[in-house]
Computed example of a mutant assay.
Amino acid sequence: MIDPDQIQSGQDLAEQLSALYGEGGWSMHRLAEASGLSPATIQKMINGPGVPQARTLEAFVAACKQPAAPWLRARDRAVKNRGSAKPSVADLQEQLADARAQIRRAKAALHLNGGTPEQILKSHARQRLEQFAAQDPLIDPQNGHLYLVVHPATGAEDALVDLFTQRPEYQLDPIIRSIVRDRGHAEFSPDLDRGVWERRSTGCALVNGVDRETGAIREERFLETSVHEDGSVTLLCGAGSISTVSGWRHVSDVINEAPQYRVVSPWLVLGLTYGALALAGTLADTHASYQGDWLVGLRVTGLSGGAWAYEVVKRGDQDVVPPYNGSHYERIAVCETSDLLTPAALTEKLAGSLIRGLSIHSLVLPYPRTDT
Rank of each mutant, 00 (worst) to 15 (best):
G48D: 07
D76M: 13
T41Q: 10
L72S: 05
E58G: 01
P70T: 05
W71I: 05
T56L: 04
K80A: 09
A63G: 00
C64G: 07
P70V: 05
A63S: 00
A90V: 15
R82N: 11
S84L: 09
A34E: 11
L72N: 03
P52L: 03
A62S: 14
K65Y: 12
G48W: 07
R77W: 06
A69W: 11
G83N: 04
R82C: 07
Q43I: 08
D91M: 04
D91N: 05
K65T: 08
A63M: 00
S35P: 04
L96P: 08
P52A: 02
A90H: 13
Q66T: 10
T41W: 05
K44R: 14
A78S: 05
G36T: 04
L57P: 09
S88V: 12
V89P: 11
L37K: 05
P49H: 12
M45F: 12
K86C: 03
A78V: 02
Q93Y: 11
S84C: 02
A62H: 11
S88T: 13
P87M: 08
R55F: 03
P49M: 10
A40W: 14
D76E: 14
R77P: 05
L96T: 15
W71M: 06
S84D: 09
G48S: 10
R55K: 10
E58K: 01
D76S: 13
L96K: 14
S88Q: 14
A78H: 01
V61G: 04
A85T: 10
V89E: 15
A68L: 02
A85V: 08
A34L: 14
R55H: 08
K86Y: 12
R77I: 07
G83E: 02
R82W: 09
S35T: 03
R77S: 08
Q93M: 13
S88L: 14
A68Q: 02
S84N: 10
R73V: 03
A69H: 13
P39R: 10
A40P: 09
P52D: 00
V79D: 03
N47H: 15
L57M: 12
D91V: 02
N81P: 06
K86L: 13
A69Q: 13
S35F: 03
R75N: 02
D76G: 13
P52M: 02
S38N: 07
F60R: 11
P70D: 06
V61N: 01
Q95E: 14
I42H: 11
N81I: 05
A40K: 13
T56D: 06
A59T: 04
A54M: 15
P67R: 01
I42D: 09
V61M: 04
V79C: 01
N47D: 15
Q93L: 15
K86D: 08
P87T: 08
A68G: 01
F60P: 09
G83P: 08
G36R: 08
G48R: 12
L37V: 00
L92C: 05
E58S: 05
V51T: 04
T56Y: 01
I46F: 00
L37N: 04
A54K: 15
I42W: 10
V89I: 14
G48I: 07
K80M: 07
L92P: 06
A63L: 01
V51E: 00
G83S: 04
Q93S: 12
C64A: 15
E58M: 00
Q53P: 02
A68I: 01
A59I: 00
